[in-house]
Amino acid sequence: MTDTHTPAPTTASASSEPPPKARPPKRKSMYPMWFYAPAGVIYTALFVVPTFASFYFSLTRWTIFDSEFIGLDNFRTFFSEPYLFDSLVNTIIYAVVTSAAKVVIGLLLAVFLSSQIIARGYLRSVIFFPTLVSAVGVGVTFSVLMDPFDGLINNLLAKVGIDGPGWITDPDMALLSVAAVDIWRGVGIATLIYIAGIVAIPQEYFEAARVDGANAFRNFWHITLPLMKPATATVIILSLIGGLRSFDLIWTMTKGGPGFSSDVLASVVYKQYQAGFYGLSTAGNVVLFLLVAAIVIPLFWFLNRKQVEQ
């Protein structure tokens, strides 16, 4: 309100309230910068500072109380020890497998669930609900269901004459089994993102295609699929970020085992932290940061640029 009155009575009010009106060009904004302050303090203290500090502490031998600079030794250890390095490979496999599956299954489910079938609302709810169950709950449940001897999955497979594998006890299977549970839990979000995209396609496209005599498959291939690019970008980025950082599900289902076969970067960070190797743990964190940045930022830029062009 002061803003609207300042120009005329500058000299008159200067005597009563000198400091604010002594400099007429400075107007107080209605959108003050201090609105940023409380959020900025919390964010800086608990996110920005630790992130920058991690770059330094990853170069040290660290016991929280004092740290000794050892250069790149932690990274050398990380890349030379197979059980540490494999976690990097596993992280990439896990993230790629889960996001690819969420894209493919999510899109197919979405096409199916937006077509004219009965019980659509029920089906959507059922597919989405696992997203809301905690990873710990899902992990415990599936580690029981996937038990090689007593588990429900292998019991069912045995009834149809298949000798089920040791889902989470076989080193070759463990990581992919956890990834499968991750897909089970997360495909609902992907599906609903795609459904929102499909619903937004103007019906005229399909009508025109019908006049041209296109069948359902050609509709999907030439209309739905190309128009799903923004939705796909969202699904890929969301699930890649989630997949690369994934910890809860892996930790409750396998703890990175058997051996180190399903260890990912986030679980290595936790293990090294528990063992008291804070410097090495932080180095693992930095590797994870660099991996996420190297994969997500180019993708983000690439996919967003394409959207802007459209």
């Binding site: 910068m33 940023y36 964010y43 203290a45 608990l46 996110f47 920005v48 500072v49 630790p50 992130t51 500090a53 991690s54 502490f57 660290w62 929280i64 970020i241 690369l244 950082r245 986030a266 960070v269 936790y270 932290y273 804070y278 743990s281 932080t282 964190n285 930095v286 994870l288 940061f289 996420v292 940045a293 997500v296 930022i297 983000f300």
Partner: peptide, 28 residues
């Protein structure tokens, strides 16, 4: 304001960057 690009960048970073665990404990 001239700060907008920086703030937007920080907001996006918050979505993408995995938090550094032990340094956070150190700050806390």
């Amino acid at each position: 304001s001239k700060w907008n690009p920086l703030i937007n960048f920080l907001v996006l970073a918050g979505l993408i960057v995995p938090p550094a665990v032990v340094p956070t404990i150190w700050v806390m």
